[in-house]
Design a binder for these strands. Sequence first.
DNA 1: TATGAATGAGAGTTCATTCAT
DNA 2: CATGAATGAACTCTCATTCAT
Lengths: 211, 211, 211, 211
Amino acid sequence: MTAEEIAPLSRVERRKAELRREIIDAAFDCFAEAGYHATGIADIAARLGIGHGTFYRYFANKRDIVEHVITDLIERLVATLTAENAPDAPHSLEEYRAQTVRIGIALADVFGEDPRVPRMLLLEAPGIDKEMSQRILDFYALATSLTAAYVGHGVQEGYLPEDLDVDNTARAINGMIMSSVLAALHDPGIDQHKLRLAIQRVMYDGIAGRR
Amino acid sequence: MTAEEIAPLSRVERRKAELRREIIDAAFDCFAEAGYHATGIADIAARLGIGHGTFYRYFANKRDIVEHVITDLIERLVATLTAENAPDAPHSLEEYRAQTVRIGIALADVFGEDPRVPRMLLLEAPGIDKEMSQRILDFYALATSLTAAYVGHGVQEGYLPEDLDVDNTARAINGMIMSSVLAALHDPGIDQHKLRLAIQRVMYDGIAGRR
Amino acid sequence: MTAEEIAPLSRVERRKAELRREIIDAAFDCFAEAGYHATGIADIAARLGIGHGTFYRYFANKRDIVEHVITDLIERLVATLTAENAPDAPHSLEEYRAQTVRIGIALADVFGEDPRVPRMLLLEAPGIDKEMSQRILDFYALATSLTAAYVGHGVQEGYLPEDLDVDNTARAINGMIMSSVLAALHDPGIDQHKLRLAIQRVMYDGIAGRR
Amino acid sequence: MTAEEIAPLSRVERRKAELRREIIDAAFDCFAEAGYHATGIADIAARLGIGHGTFYRYFANKRDIVEHVITDLIERLVATLTAENAPDAPHSLEEYRAQTVRIGIALADVFGEDPRVPRMLLLEAPGIDKEMSQRILDFYALATSLTAAYVGHGVQEGYLPEDLDVDNTARAINGMIMSSVLAALHDPGIDQHKLRLAIQRVMYDGIAGRR
DNA sequence: TATGAATGAGAGTTCATTCAT
DNA sequence: CATGAATGAACTCTCATTCAT
């Protein structure tokens, strides 16, 4: 744990880490655009202009790279969901509402900026193999627990009903978000703002409430 | 629409239709259990004890059979969603609510009885290729329009607010249902009843409402 | 065990068995001529004018075919060594000598007729991998035990000294035979008859014996 | 043959020669243990802790190194066979016998001390390629001529029969030695002394002689 | 001089599809 | 009409060799 260990990487090491990063990105591009099974290692290498043997210096095999692509995606998403949005920050329903709006916008940014992200995660990844589909289901579960932390906090603080079914309510909320993501995939021109408003309304008033 | 077309099928024709049916079912079994790409035509044929050359007398190629498997699934689901649940049946919020409960139970039956159905539709199919993932997105859109018909009817009848964003609210509702299906895939032992109650509560009261 | 089970193979079955045989032979040709590692599955298939995918309908992989090639060779050799030469046939040193001459000639036939046989067995096979080299060593051991049966019989019958080290003498005899095989590989024009006479002389008189 | 050529090597040159030697030894280790084809250049380099690019500064390619490994082995064996055992030394059958015993023991030392030596020479090398298998056969022939020199000397001195087939007798003798080497490879615990005695007995008395 | 990153020829293997029987 | 033998395109992965640093 000396300073040396944190010393800046050598030029060669930097180049290696950089290429590794580029391969992950190129693989993501290929998988998201053509699909995992339709993509050959040669396609990934060609996109970078490197020999396909080089690929195997950085990743053990095709399964390995997609693992990294997905891990990368999930980490970015989880970072987005948790960054500057601690579950225990809000202390009133209004603050809570404001936070859910912020999170919704952040999510829409991640998913909406590059539609290949949700395409990869929701459409492509689960069909790769049993293990990967389990990983995606686990990711759903993780998202549920993140959302449940927010909901649970609201119950503890008293601005959400104490008899609320925290976990399942979290599932319902996440389902609405996922639905909006899929809607955007199906119809990229959809009005995301209206979509978000509708979800907020169901969340806070129910379909029959207000007015 | 001549008399001939409705004429009873000959014994041979019946046998052919029957085998066609069996091949679709066997293919569904294989695809749902092992995955589309991991399943070979030989696997499907072997499951039926027929030669794999025979397969090609009934379906043009591997892509063709999965097309039929999915079409079949979607038709069954749409039938469940529409059967005895006309959007214009309910005339009060109470009747509407009762109907959503009925539909929810029916859906849970279809999806819950055989987890391979949602597995195939939500996890396996979208990763097959671009065209198929589009079909699945189209199916989501269709489900949205079905739900939107119910919601829209409620608005017209007056028991739902007239300023409700019908389509997006439908998307939110469907998202909650999808989420419950995925939750069941991740954790088969989950309490479906509690899940349904939580969704109903969000739907009708919002997360902060009632008590 | 009815007559039916022994019933002649159908035309298709015969053709399959025949092709299987041809693949083994072609593989033997390739391996013996070019070497195991220098031979590709495509080479074997090309030699038969079949698609290389066809190869895999008959053998699991490259290792599998060489296994069969070697098994085949060894079986043929063992058959030669044991056919019409029961170890307990001779009852005097003269009969015994006559029998060793017969066996020697038979061996020379098998090995000499097609030099690819010893080339495959002695030069090519041991270098394939550890398992195969063990198989070849096991074959040497088997040959030792076959020869030892002859020598042991001679001791029991009394025409060989009772204090003879049966196993090691058998090893010595086999070594001389192997040496003559290698000599023929190195110099195909070598006088096999003279070679056999010299071995017989060492066997029965020692290098210093008889005049 | 100028003074310069015999001049002591510089420190750098000595280091180079040393590393060259180490590479040969490491290659021998790898080839003998894992087999020629299963060994990569990287394995050899790794064993020495050098970069595998460095290998190519000392040897032209993979084939080149194995060539040197084998040359090295053969030279060591020939040195053993000829050292202090001039074919013209013995002048009676007893002296001759004593010498063959000495040579046998020396050979057993070389082969027995490190079983990788015979493994490399007899099992691994011939399967590398045509040229190498020819080299091994040539080595057998060389060994034959070495042994034949002894036998021939015995004939000339008169203590071996004048009508002895010198070359083929030499082949027979070498075959018995090779057999004992293979026996030790198959069964490392074998009693080498008994084996040597049995070979001596066949050599000098024949299988039927003495007692 | 030593290094190891990059390379791509080439190998084994799979499997959807065809078609003669 | 049913069959499964035959096929070869296509893919993943290895590793000897080169060469810029």
